[in-house]
Nucleic acid binder design. Structure first.
Lengths: 340, 340
DNA sequence: TTGTAGGCGTTATCAA
DNA sequence: TTGATAACGCCTACAA
């Protein structure tokens, strides 16, 4: 069923060397031979065997990414878009994308890294959901293995990354809420060692401080980046003796749950409660009411990351090695209210 | 940096054959030798080179899946969960998952198939979003290449699949709407050649017929499986001279847009308009109001599919070759109204 | 129980 | 411009 380079060579009565070079576009093959080879190969349905090529060339033409599946049922639109971006950029460069799943920091995750990195199954790794100290970054840096990250860990290592300034933009959300008269602004966050959590929470604190508001520990709740987490957090917050008049969420998914709880408890969102998200995942404009959020171009971010990774792998100089991406503040009815 | 089997053998002054067999668990190696080899390999950080193993064994230990990215910005939670399920089942069997992206029926898609199937980069393919006539199914069947599908095309070919009875369950939604007094039930669908569209639309028609309702062409609109598609469809429907009192959507994502349009036009969903979805993607319980839908265990479905594919690849007999999955009808306030 | 050797399909070196 | 040949790292018949 599968055609090898040898069969193509036999058919044309020439050596496999010539076939190989004709197909790879070397210039020491006569035009006539090249045309003949290319046509014949095409017509015979020849496709190079990837394993053989990889073994010989010592590269896999493949990049890797591991989905951080904390829970069995993992369905976050952020990652669908992220993977699509990686896949598209990889495909555009004739690379493939190898995907696996593992709970962050698990033994399973480490095994995959060993298989892929030492087994040379991939040529580089894409990382997101960074931790403040991230073993993956340390591991890859130690093995001098190409990587690119979304956000940066605190590890004092030099590596390429793409960043969205979560601190600055979360602060912008807080300032927006303040400008609408909100003064009891709650925060629903995520696990403390996640970089997005520390950054966004810092932005929250920055905003409060700049506006002369005190940080009230009773208004800070930890979620888990799921709607359920947001739902529970909002229930707790809204049952406080003095409930908040605004809830700033660490991400859009959390905000979905917050909206749900708010409706259930009879709040009119946009009026007696303002809610904000962060990320700009699918459908944030279609929640009720439409969600004020910081819209990150997730697809573009993923493509940019893949591109930077491929440049490294190809040994091209990478300038700049840290790229800032500017998101867009989307003001919607979840804060503005019905006038919109 | 990378340790080969040869280096392990040299270090122990034994042949690579022995090392290989000790690691692969053959029983013709003395216990002492095995222990020594295993320990040394572990300690040296030996990981088999995947390309070499693949070339020799003629398998890639990898399964493939292509995301159907119609639009550049593709962020559908269904696929995040689906990929997570495939990845988990693959990882549990020491397989990897290769992912790419391509618009359905595009030349790009065909190139990926050629690369992966003929290049033997993967050992089997996972397919979903089937078309009534699906070139992928035909191509793989023709090449006697392992595959598994979600839903079935009309191609008269024998291949393993997992199915959810969209026709029957969509009909259940229509009957539910009818039981609540709804009589003008609209349908927002998708591209006509998609199997999920034909099935669910057929279920819609079945329901109408069984209940003695006429099919009104003015109440059938084509969406595109995005919130925007649902949004536009709902606007059109609600602007009809005699608008519907219920909208049954081909999927949850479409329903999100329908909910948005309904709110914007002043409908009270659950009261003067009922809305249903299909799929059970993340957050459907957190829309406003929570969405009545058919909840499919997407993660389980994906695992089941991967498992069936791996069985085929391993040459294990596959019984049964067609698996039915039972979803759950989730009745929520988008049809039941506030009493819930 | 262990070792020798050939080959999986490509690419790259070297010679013709 | 082309061809013979030797790897790449692993697995497995076969021999010892």
């Amino acid at each position: 069923m599968t055609v090898t380079i040898r069969e193509v060579a036999q058919k044309l009565n020439i050596s496999i060397t010539t076939v190989s070079r004709a197909l790879d576009g070397y210039d020491d093959v006569s035009d006539e031979t090249r045309r003949l080879v290319v046509d014949t190969a095409q017509q015979m349905g020849y496709v190079p065997n990837r394993a053989a090529r990889q073994l010989r060339r010592q590269r896999a033409d493949t990049i890797g990414y591991i989905l951080p599946t904390e829970t069995p049922r993992f369905s976050n639109p952020f990652f669908a878009e992220f993977v699509a971006g990686l896949g598209d950029e990889a495909a555009a460069n004739n690379y493939d994308l190898l995907v696996s799943t593992a709970p962050p920091k698990s033994a399973a995750e480490q095994e995959i890294y060993a298989r892929w990195v030492h087994g040379r199954k991939v040529d580089g790794m894409v990382l997101n959901r960074l931790r403040q100290r991230d073993w993956r970054v340390q591991y890859l840096a130690q093995n001098v293995f190409p990587l690119v990250t979304l956000q940066r860990s605190l590890d004092p290592l030099e590596y390429p990354s793409v960043e969205v300034d979560g601190r600055r933009w979360f602060r912008a959300l807080v300032e927006h809420l303040y400008s609408l008269g909100r003064r009891r602004i709650a925060y629903v966050g995520a696990a403390a060692d996640l970089v997005i959590q520390t950054e966004r929470f810092q932005g929250y604190q920055d905003g409060l401080a700049a506006l002369g508001l005190a940080l009230d520990a009773a208004l800070v709740v930890e979620g888990d980046l799921t709607p359920e987490g947001g739902y529970r957090a909002a229930q707790a917050l809204l049952n406080r003796p003095v409930p908040p008049d605004a809830v700033a969420c660490v991400d859009d998914i959390t905000a979905m749950g917050v909206l749900h709880a708010a409706h259930e408890m009879g709040c009119v969102v946009g009026k007696n409660l303002a809610v904000t998200g962060f990320d700009g995942v699918i459908g944030f404009e279609h929640t009720h009411p439409p969600l004020t959020t910081v819209n990150q171009p997730v697809y573009q971010i993923a493509r940019q990351m893949a591109q930077m990774l491929l440049a490294q792998i190809a040994g091209r100089p990478l300038e700049p090695r840290q790229v800032q991406i500017e998101p867009v503040l989307e003001l919607n009815a979840s804060t503005l209210g019905a006038q919109k």
